[in-house]
Amino acid sequence: MRESAAERHARLLDLVRERGTVRVAELAGLLGVSPVTARRDAEALASRGLLDRVHGQVSWPRATGPGAPAGAPAGGPGAGAGLVLGLLAPSATYYFAEVIRGAHEAAARAGARLVLRISDYRPEEDRARTEGLLAAGAEGVLVAPGWRGPEDRAAYGDWLAGLPVPAVLLERRAEPGSPLDGLDRVSSDHAHGVLLALRHLIGLGHPTPLLVARGDSPTALAVRAGYAEALAVLGLEAPRPVIDSVPAEADPEGFERAVRALYEAVRSGLASAALVHNDVDAIEITQRLAPLGVRVPQDLALIAYDDEVAALADTPLTAVAPPKRQVGRHATELLVERLTGGADEEPASRHVSLLPRLRVRASCGAARPVPPL
């Protein structure tokens, strides 16, 4: 099977972590790829703060800056000095790049070593990859399983509760009462993020915003559930069911159906605003609506969910921004505390929910639409 970019990035990070510093020119031979690929990989990881890149070489980052422990030298030991922490993530790009970055920064500040494995959203491989982290010396693990829906959680989840080391769930929630429900976890409160978006749009004069959302990830499902909760909190009824969104490149016909459904809702006067999960879909939907005569923000007020690339749209998109980097940081700090607490009594498990923010830009200033003649 051909190695994915995420797997190659994980190997590159392993190499640099083990060696401390590697010349970019040497990476191609070490990774078995072309020099151009090695250079691009190094640049991509450095741009996300996972590596330091200076004068043709890459280095494992040192704990510097305002987050470093007071009075400690850069890279000096912290509360977790000498610990090895494992991190399993479904991806090293888009949403989870910031989660990984936060975890890496917190581990570095604590003086711990962070070992990364990527599942590429293959939940059937989560257990083996986590066991690989343990074999690499991980004394505790941060785990974001590659679940896409409840069926994956049911089929590939219970093993986590039997791990021989402390574990913290990242951006995942267990079924109440299940074996996983007793684990520490840190996640974004997506229901709060959806409520922020709907309240903002309603405050601008839009009666009941629509939701356009995917259904292929825990975040997407949480956004959908949060939409129903927010409507209830605000005393509103849904104008119509959620519009199902799919990646345009994977399912062009399904994507076109979503665009047409939103177009008809706007042109019929049913809706003047929408929340779209995620940023990429929001940008592509905006681009597709324009030649149909629906403009953002003139005809449709739009808010994206994720805030990864929303600010880069032609019309910068207002977006809900989950605290991804803080999720990684808080989870790592919790795990380090669990491993180094030294208390006589084992601390209670914690379920930590961090609140997203709404970043207001140009895309949500639409006026009420004019019904067609």
Rank of each mutant, 00 (worst) to 15 (best):
P323E: 09
V320M: 11
V360Y: 14
R329Y: 06
L339T: 07
P316V: 05
S363K: 07
G341D: 15
R329P: 06
G341C: 10
D314H: 15
L358W: 06
L312D: 13
D344E: 14
Q326G: 05
V336E: 13
Q326M: 10
L358I: 08
A311I: 02
C364A: 13
A343G: 12
P316W: 04
L355N: 09
S353D: 09
S353P: 03
R338N: 00
E346S: 06
L354S: 01
R357N: 00
L355F: 07
P356A: 00
H330I: 14
L312Y: 14
T332C: 09
L335G: 05
R357K: 11
G328D: 08
P347D: 04
A362N: 11
R329G: 10
V336P: 11
C364R: 12
V320N: 08
E337F: 07
A331K: 08
T318Q: 10
V320D: 06
E345P: 00
P347C: 09
L334A: 15
P322W: 05
H330D: 02
H351C: 02
G342M: 06
P323A: 14
R338Q: 03
E333K: 01
S353E: 02
R350T: 15
T332E: 03
H330E: 09
V327Y: 05
G341L: 07
L355G: 04
V360H: 11
P356M: 01
E337Q: 10
L354R: 04
L317A: 05
A313T: 11
L358N: 04
K324N: 08
P322E: 03
L317W: 08
E345V: 14
P347R: 02
S363Q: 08
L334H: 13
R361D: 05
L355Y: 10
E346D: 00
A319E: 06
H330C: 01
R338E: 01
D344L: 08
R329D: 07
P347F: 00
E346L: 07
P347G: 07
G365A: 15
T332I: 07
A321G: 01
A348M: 01
V320E: 04
L339H: 03
E346N: 05
P347T: 01
T315D: 01
V360R: 14
S349L: 08
E337K: 05
D314W: 09
P347L: 11
V336Q: 12
R338D: 03
A311M: 12
R361M: 02
R329V: 04
L354A: 04
A348G: 08
S363W: 11
H330W: 01
R361E: 03
E333I: 03
A313D: 14
A343V: 01
R350F: 12
A313R: 13
L317C: 10
